[in-house]
Amino acid sequence: MASLKKDNFVLMVPGHPSSLSVIRWVVTRLARAADLTPDQVDQIEIAVDEACTNVIEHAYESLLPKPPIHLEIQTKDEQFVVDVIDCGQAFDYDSFVSPKIPEHWLEGHERGVGIFLIRQCMDEVLYDVLPDERNRMRLVKKRHPLPLSESQPDPC
């Protein structure tokens, strides 16, 4: 997996719940290859799954056939970045207010914590509309490279 450490990956999957297991599989393997800690890998898995679930359940709710979801995964020197790009209904991310926990549950709500969870799991979350009118949620996790003594030797 060492060759994956500095590469960028693009993944296009059907905008359907059955794609989620494939998305999680790919993203967690790339995150591990980027030397992220097991806890960081878990957090990225959750954030990406939630972001894609939001696209499927909300951005694509009224669209038939369901458009694909486009993912771009970049391993940079100091960051692991996942862009989740959709061409559905835009979301007013800036006006989203995180729920109060645990009052949210006690008030009777059973859902509505996906964005909150994404924010808790990632170091940075950005949402914007691209020039081609697609929506992009950028999920950023800071990398803390292993000390040299623990790094894999470079075969070259």
Binding site: R24, D49, E50, T53, H109, E110, V113, G114
Partner: peptide, 13 residues
Amino acid sequence: SYMNSSSFGLLFH
């Protein structure tokens, strides 16, 4: 091995 946010809400339900 995995639960999404909505399924956590189900636990309290």
